[in-house]
Nucleic acid binder design. Structure first.
Lengths: 227, 227
DNA sequence: GTCTATAAACGGATAGAC
DNA sequence: GTCTATCCGTTTATAGAC
């Protein structure tokens, strides 16, 4: 029931599946149409090209996903208490929770984690554009809850946050590269979130690296002045 | 002078370069031999196959790299003061510092970051095996400096650490996916290390996520007991 | 060890019948 | 909207001359 019945959606579902499992470049249109049991030519008929198919697969879930993240931020601000933990959870919660959806959701989340490292210029441009509104909305919110943090430092730490998020999103595959003993059972997304939020919040609140902060950022933000 | 003159090393250098720039699957042997100005057949002659070439490219730098990480940990322990910050720096410092080497080093570091997400079963097995000694050496060391942290929680946090490390190692490409304003100049590896170590140390030392810790880990490690 | 030439398979995309 | 058949470029890998 997670699979739609008409050709176009069957292609989207199967492509999402295979892209997430094998990567974009390693998945051929023939593999997709074969698994989806549709004709090869149907891909070009419905999506124009492989590139068009990839964009369609991403857009189908990314747009509602980012709307949800922004919606949660809106709600935090409406309620008047925007905490760092709340911000982090509004940002990383929706994609991680999507993993619970036993159907396409978990596969798509892995796919998203993968787009951060796949190498195709159109993909980078597409993702940057698709995330633009999200970034413009969250950046000032993070600045507001971490006002003592110099701008440059904050942006680096947000990069570190994204690093953790995409790593977790990419799933167990890469986690098993390090773990000799693999966790046979993957944890619930809610539990991962509860593990990762304190980690990230503590990292974002960490004391500044000493001299570096003073040498670089003294001009662009007021350093902590306890006096 | 970073480029060797004989065929075998020219292939390795060029392959490292192109693999890092475009990804493993997206780089063909023809592109490599063309850039290296060697014959296509030379690849199979020297390395047997594309897979053999990939393994050779990785092993050439990964083995001395991991030896250096372990060497630093050895030194920390010999000197008798193993701090969390010191451990983190021994683990992530060598790969990040390799970026300073204007020659193959920085390219290889990006390549390493990429292997964590490329999808090829032989690659995963190869990397897992290549990192086995490293993991077995560092895991107990982290446990020793964070004795109050339940085992499961520590392993998750080490995963988060690797997430940050591989993200930073993969370089500016993916960082620009989020940043509307790109930092035209990339920072010195030493400065990145000084930014990321406090972030990671704070994250690893973060207070436990409350109930979760008690519900799961109460049996396998003593929870913090201030009394 | 290095070359040319080519095999054999696979990739995306399209034309044209139905 | 779906199908078959096909074009055409690219891929890895190898055979055999030098």
């Amino acid at each position: 029931m997670a699979e739609a019945s008409d050709t176009k959606d069957r292609i989207l579902d199967t492509a999402e599946h295979l892209f997430a499992e094998r990567g974009l470049g390693q998945t051929s249109l023939r593999q997709i149409t074969s698994h989806a049991e549709v004709n090869l030519a149907a891909v070009n008929y419905h999506f124009g090209s492989k590139e068009g198919l990839i964009k369609a697969v991403l857009a189908r879930r990314l747009e509602p996903l980012n709307r949800e993240r922004i919606r949660r931020l809106d709600r935090l601000e409406r309620q008047g208490h925007v905490t760092l933990e709340g911000l982090i959870e509004a940002f990383i919660g929706p994609p991680l929770e999507l993993s619970r959806d036993g159907g396409g959701g978990s596969r798509f989340v892995r796919l998203m984690g993968r787009t951060y490292t796949e190498h195709a210029s159109f993909l980078h441009e597409h993702m940057r554009h698709a995330n633009e509104a999200l970034v413009n909305r969250f950046k000032p919110a993070f600045r507001a809850v971490l006002p003592e943090l110099p701008k440059t430092e904050l942006y680096w730490r947000l990069h570190f946050l994204v690093g953790v998020m995409s790593y977790v999103m990419a799933g167990n595959d890469m986690m098993q590269l390090l773990a000799a003993s693999r966790n046979s059972e993957q944890e619930e997304p809610r539990e991962i979130i509860r593990r990762v939020v304190p980690f990230l919040a503590a990292g974002l609140r960490a004391p500044l690296p000493e001299e570096l902060a003073q040498a670089r950022d003294v001009l662009e933000a007021s350093p902590r002045d306890p006096a």
